[in-house]
């Protein structure tokens, strides 16, 4: 696993939010093409790590970005980052794909694309600020904790698979995850 992008990432994150906001506001194709260049390969990489073949991952990454394009007007940059939104779209697509492999099912509407009926303003207000804090807390984790957190999102059977990949006892993986999650939650403590 390569080291996370470090200092350049926050800048990239806000740039991506701006690009997606431009797509949302005016269907800006040039802005979308840049989003595609950044996110499509990352979504594909995520899906391959989680066990899809390169072809399946490529197709599903195309599907995910198509949803981003078609539903961009539902995106509000003050609420969550582009990366978080695109992550949840990709995650839900791959869950649905796995489900369809086992049995036919009427398509669930992707929850990431459904607007909520009633505002829950008190809980949601500080979302964008929380996202930035989570970013910072993740960057501040010790490298061994950061590695298990990333693998947690990238493995299909997280705990056992992480243990195998890092050649660590299962208990160590679980305690590192608990420590990392605890630190991140603590960083957010005064916002909660």
């Amino acid at each position: 696993m390569s080291a996370p992008g470090g200092a350049e990432r926050p800048a990239a994150a806000s740039e991506m939010n701006d690009l997606l906001a431009r797509v949302a506001a005016s269907g800006d194709r040039e802005a979308f093409s840049r989003l595609f260049a950044f996110f499509a390969p990352r979504v594909k990489g995520y899906l391959m790590r989680i066990g899809l073949s390169p072809d399946q991952a490529e197709d599903l990454a195309q599907d995910a970005l198509l949803k981003v394009w078609r539903k961009a007007r539902l995106f509000d940059p003050s609420k969550a980052s582009a990366a978080t939104w695109i992550y949840t779209i990709a995650r839900n697509l791959r869950i649905d794909a796995a489900r369809r492999l086992n049995r036919p099912l009427p398509d669930h509407e992707d929850p990431a694309l459904l607007p909520e009926e009633e505002p829950r303003a008190d809980v949601e207000l500080e979302r964008a600020q929380r996202d930035r804090r989570i970013h910072a807390a993740f960057d501040a984790l010790p490298p061994n904790q950061r590695a298990v957190v990333m693998l947690h999102f990238y493995e299909d059977e997280p705990h056992a698979a992480i243990a195998e990949r890092l050649d660590l006892p299962l208990g160590t993986v679980k305690s590192r995850l608990r420590l990392a999650f605890g630190r991140i939650r603590k960083e957010l403590g005064d916002l909660a």
């Binding site: 499509a40 390969p41 594909k44 990489g45 992550y87 949840t88 996202d131 990333m150 999102f153």
Partner: peptide, 18 residues
């Protein structure tokens, strides 16, 4: 919060070229 962490990990992920 954990979904946002998933978003952070997606940004930090190793890209697989399309």
């Amino acid at each position: 919060d954990f979904e946002a962490l998933g978003g952070v990990c997606l940004e930090a992920a190793e890209p697989a070229p399309m």
